[in-house]
Design a protein around this nucleic acid. Structure first.
Lengths: 234, 234
DNA sequence: ACAAAAGTGTTCAGAGTACACCCATGT
DNA sequence: ACATGGGTGTACTCTGAACACTTTTGT
């Protein structure tokens, strides 16, 4: 028995805890997630989420933050605990329970592309999820429906956007999250009345001759609606 | 190192996983939960949720079901995984992560009262939660808000009701869950149109001279709305 | 002048909300 | 006859949903 446990707990058999991360981002107006080639046996070489064991000196949440930081170089990322997966035989290597987290990252940030490539990670589209190792596919599916549920009542779509963005881009992100087209006019009307957007006196002219206005988020309103809830039911 | 782990996992330090259960029920038209006097050191004698370590041969979910069964004698109970609590020092006895579950039980069932008393459990009101051991109080608060959130969009209030019940009782349960009064007429209108209730040709005459009609659930509609969602936003 | 994306308003239906009185019955 | 809880209906407001044309500007 391990010595960091008090004697009352001695007859309990310990196990391992792992954290797996489902990392969402937007690329080409599509919702994507990061996957990897698994490096450790068993099942080395298969596709997998990024994960790690929880170290004895760190909390489960710290483990999730560490994993995310190691991969992306980012801190203070939007992160939600998804679920604890605890089937006895979920990992053929031993008794390992997994705590899955999902997170949203802005893909436009410095060094992110570099870090992702260094780790040989790949962005894959969420509508064609390949076979993944262990129960990771189940985790991904649960994460997607969790994300959708959350996105209906909290303004979290914004966590995926770059610093400055157009309404058209935001619309595409929401379409990607919900997986169906959204009425343009209703979307604009709602968002412009939400107080979440601060109009900028510039246009992005990269996608049309006319150009479309750029916005940034109103952090204050964002924080408020994160707490209170807000219907994005499109 | 324990022998049930494969060699690749050998340099990872194992830890213990516990399950803690937040058990909700309705008594005297109030929402209550079950708490216990903790029997094991550390902190024996303090108030606590019912919990147990996850055994090496059972899944986390099975552990939760086992705990619930040992206490109540009930199976097939409505149960939701709440959260995994993984702070390093959350348990002074060692590195223990806890997976919390909440569940809803019908208090009218056979032997339940007996079992509860045998285990020296107590029903306590959710608006005056006493100090609890470790991080259990935090769990309870999170469970309550999780329950409220869930109850707004799924017909789970029914899981707390006896086999046959009146609309008045159901109303009280929803008031207890949400913690505020609900308009009588709107509630009836909505519920009677939901297809969730099957009227019975009897009255409960224990609470008034006139008596009030009894209902039971429409299991079929219930299952459907559990999947699809249904707004109980009162 | 035209192509290509950006931007703009109105109408309709359904759901939530507020609100006050009569009913049935045992004592 | 009356006290007690049970049961009922209507009007208003707000939100979501459907839907088509004009504007700008680089080429």
């Amino acid at each position: 028995m391990t010595k960091y446990l008090s004697p009352q707990y001695e007859d309990v058999k310990p196990l391992l805890a792992a954290v797996d991360c489902i990392i969402f981002g937007v690329q080409d107006n599509k919702l994507k997630l990061l996957i990897f080639k698994r490096e450790v046996e068993p099942l080395a070489g298969c596709l997998s989420l990024l994960g790690s064991f929880v170290k004895i000196e760190e909390s489960v949440e710290e483990a999730a933050e560490r994993i995310l930081f190691e991969l992306t170089g980012l801190k203070d990322i939007y992160m939600e605990q998804l679920h604890c997966y605890g089937a006895v035989d979920r990992d053929p290597g031993g008794r390992v329970i997994a705590i899955a987290y999902w997170s949203l990252i802005r893909v436009d940030q410095n060094h992110l592309e570099f870090n992702v490539r260094t780790h040989e990670a790949k962005w894959i589209s969420i509508d064609r999820i390949p076979e993944l190792v262990l129960d990771h596919r189940q985790m991904v599916e649960m994460a997607i429906s969790n994300l959708r549920e959350k996105a209906r009542f909290r303004p979290i779509g914004f966590e995926l956007m770059p610093e400055e963005f157009t309404l058209g881009q935001l619309l595409k992100v929401y379409e990607a999250i919900f997986g169906h087209p959204i009425d343009d006019r209703n979307f604009r009307k709602k968002l412009l009345n939400s107080g979440l957007l601060i109009p900028l006196p510039k246009k992005d002219k990269s996608t049309s001759r006319k150009g479309s206005f750029l916005f940034k988020f109103n952090q204050e309103t964002y924080q408020k609606l994160l707490l209170e809830g807000y219907s994005f039911g499109f």
